[in-house]
Each structure stands twice: as C-alpha cells, then as structure tokens.
Simulated assay, not measured.
Amino acid sequence: MLSAAGTALGGLLFGSNTTVISGATGTLQARFAMTDASLGFIVASALIGTVIGSLVTGVPSDRHGRKTVMLSFAIAYVVSPLGTALAQSWPMLIPFRVLGGLAIGAASVVPPPPPDLHRRAIDRPFSSAAGGHEPAEHRARYPGRVPQQ
C-alpha cells in the first residue's frame, strides 16, 4: 500500500506542477521579457526532466535501494522550487525546472508496487495527476484564499 501511495504522490506532483506553471506563464513572460519560444521551453523543461527521471532512476534504485534514491529526489524536489524562485533570468530557470521534473519522474517510477496491487498502482499516477490539478488550480485562481471545509 505504501508503494501505491508513493506512486500516487508522483502523479499528484506532476499534476500540481503542470497546473502551477500554466498559471504562471503570463507573469514569467512579463518578468523575464521572454519570447513565446523561450516560455514554451521553460514550461516543457520540467516535462523533459520527468521523462529523463522516469527512464534513468531504475538502475540507481536497484543498485542503491529505493529509499536512498527517493530521499535524494525528495531533496531535489525541495531545491527545485527554491532555485526557481531565486532565478534572476529565464535561462537560470531551466536547470531547476529540469531538476523538479527529474524528481517527479523518479517518484512516478521508483516505488514498485507489490504484484497484487500492480494494476491499481499503474492507474494511480494518472488519477493523481488529475487530482493534483484541482488544488493547484484553486491556488492559481484565488491566491491567498483557503477553501472552507
């Protein structure tokens, strides 16, 4: 069950990241005087990192263990938004967006599900990605407002 939760978290992070950057494109373009092509590359750089992260984390995970790899990518996922927030130019955003993508890709792949949960765990990242959009979309539309329960 813990593996399925880890896989779901990867999907949730992916959905949240995608929504947040979608809401920030206007601000980024104005702040850094970006062309449409450079803005598109900034948005896509996290997706590029996600693909690379999901492709390359299997071997280190087998060699060093899942927990070690996940801890290193958890640290990367904390460093990524800090570097993005402190970037002084749009080229400085790229490595931090890729780093965040690497962490998301690793979180989607590294925690392998037990055989009896395999099918449900495969579905989890996709439903979690959709679930990650909602809170991030609310935050983008209503900054400073917390939904009432």
Rank of each mutant, 00 (worst) to 15 (best):
A121H: 09
V56K: 11
P112V: 09
A4C: 12
S128W: 11
V110C: 06
G65F: 00
L71C: 05
F126S: 13
T57W: 03
G132M: 06
G100P: 07
M1F: 07
V51T: 14
H138D: 03
G65R: 05
R66L: 02
S128N: 15
L28I: 10
R63Q: 11
L99I: 03
S54A: 11
T84C: 14
A74G: 04
D116M: 05
N17E: 13
P114Y: 02
G40M: 03
F96A: 01
G6M: 12
S127K: 11
T84F: 15
P60Y: 14
V51K: 06
E134D: 08
F96H: 03
N17F: 05
L71F: 11
R31S: 13
S80L: 01
H133C: 15
R119C: 06
Q88P: 08
P60H: 11
S72K: 06
P114M: 02
L47F: 07
A8E: 05
A121C: 05
H118R: 13
G101F: 12
S22Y: 12
I122A: 15
F96G: 00
H64S: 13
G105L: 07
V20G: 02
A24G: 06
H64P: 04
D62W: 05
P95R: 01
D123E: 09
P95I: 01
F73K: 04
H138K: 05
R124C: 09
